[in-house]
Write a protein that binds this DNA or RNA. Structure first.
Length: 240
DNA sequence: TACCAGGTCCTCG
DNA sequence: CGAGGACATGGT
């Protein structure tokens, strides 16, 4: 087993299924493990998203969470939900200024309002169903202003369930500390995708587990002592 | 109080 | 290309 696979195994055994992407609009979904879904997470259930509304909630969340803590994003999404704006058509219709005010808690709210309007009008012009079935989804998403590689790949993986590996700041930090030389987005992504079978459910978990590790141990100021990857990592052996 | 958070765009060398 | 700045709120 290669190291990339081994790391996944270690993280999954440590933290278990994560239940991404968190959705406020879960319907009556239950997790496979029998535990009930909480806070929008649905561990062990890989069926979601089931509806276009849920797909759009993921797309909106992916934009709102750009360089922003999820906690703040939840506040913004709750505001949108209350105004029935977790919908492509309604985002397309709403006044941009009004939208900006509603998503204010997520930060960068003027930019993000514009980005949400952008993507909504794009989804309508292409028709979300056809787009998600199409061949050039990633390239089309990347062509939109406000959607870069991570947001595009989050949409690919979590909304469209395509086996595309998402790279984020946590992934870069963790794997740099582990000693990998791959530094750019595409390079790191290629490392994962050439080391793993193309499995959307597993990519889903792996990315979520990386986030979990980064929050618990591999922070900017790391807590290495109890890190599940300590045995594989030579970074900062001296730090607690 | 300062630092950080599930990025992206634009400009400049 | 890549570095550097702008964009902004809320939690610790």
């Amino acid at each position: 087993m290669n190291l990339i696979k081994n790391i996944y195994k270690i993280l999954f055994e440590k933290y278990g299924p994560q239940g991404w992407w968190p959705l406020l609009n879960l319907g009556n979904v239950q997790s496979q493990s029998g535990s009930k879904s909480y806070g929008g997470y649905h561990p062990g259930n890989y069926e979601l998203p089931l509806t276009e509304e849920q797909q759009f909630e993921i797309i909106a969340g992916a934009i709102l969470t750009q360089n922003t803590s999820w906690n703040n994003v939840v506040k913004a999404i709750l505001n949108l939900k209350q105004k029935k704006l977790l919908s492509v058509n309604n985002i397309n219709k709403v006044n941009e200024k009004e939208l900006a005010l509603l998503i204010r808690p997520s930060g960068y709210f003027n930019q993000k309002a514009k980005r949400l309007k952008n993507v909504a009008s794009f989804l309508i012009s292409r028709q979300i169903k056809k787009l998600f079935a199409g061949k050039n989804l990633r390239a089309e998403l990347l062509s939109l202003n406000g959607i870069g590689p991570e947001t595009a790949d989050s949409i690919m993986l979590y909304a469209a369930k395509k086996p595309i590996f998402v790279i984020d700041a946590y992934t870069k930090r963790i794997f740099a500390r582990l000693g990998y030389n791959e530094t750019g987005y595409d390079e790191l992504q290629a490392l994962f995708m050439s080391s793993l079978e193309p499995d959307a459910a597993m990519f889903n978990e792996y990315h979520a587990l990386i986030v979990e590790l980064a929050k618990n141990h591999c922070r900017k100021k790391p807590i290495c002592s109890s890190c599940p990857l300590a045995g594989l990592c030579s970074y900062n052996k001296s730090i607690s």
